[in-house]
Amino acid sequence: MDFINVFIKSAFIENLVLAYFLGMCSYLAVSKSIKTAFGLGLAVIFVLGITMPINWVINEKILGENGIFHTDLTFLRFILFIAVIASMVQLVELVIEKFSPALYTSLGIFLPLITVNCAILGGSLFMVSREYNFTQSVAFGLGGGFGWFLAIVAIAAIREKMRYSNVPAPLRGLGMAFILTGLMGIAFMSLMGIDPAALAGK
């Protein structure tokens, strides 16, 4: 039950892109077609889903006071988290290059940039500050990734439809994407404050 609550909360109510505006760069740049957006979304789900539990274990068992060193090493948090994320992204890059060269070339520079996708590091830091346990951190990783995936596929679909609209030429493409994201963000603000745990209790 806890798992489902955190999953739904992180995917819809506290969406990383549309509520916290994390991971905007790749979100805006790779959302030109649904196909590439879909691929990048899956990669983000994978990276978030894997790094979150690993970072939880590192944070609790190595850096914390109850960890194997029995000292407070939390000042190393940034560097260790980013190292885990970077190695995972490198792994994903090697896998995609091997199995889908077409997707690899279409993602281009934005594949290595998943490393510096603020959503990934931000997610790990949220996990620490919200004091999630292991199950919750797995749920948060998968849910946050799913929310990101949903948002990028949604905007890619809107942008594909937008091509048939009569948008002023200078606003076409990127400019329109910014304004659409702003509108989607305002729409998602209405979901904030819903508490799934309280709803389940009733």
Partner: peptide
């Protein structure tokens, strides 16, 4: 709110590309 900067950047892009025609998205 941070949402506002999305609209402002959208506006900046609009103005920028009005004066710099070669950046206009043709596709």
């Amino acid at each position: 709110l941070s949402t506002a900067s999305l609209f402002i950047i959208g506006g900046i892009i609009w103005i920028h590309r009005t004066y710099n025609k070669k950046l206009v998205d043709i596709s």
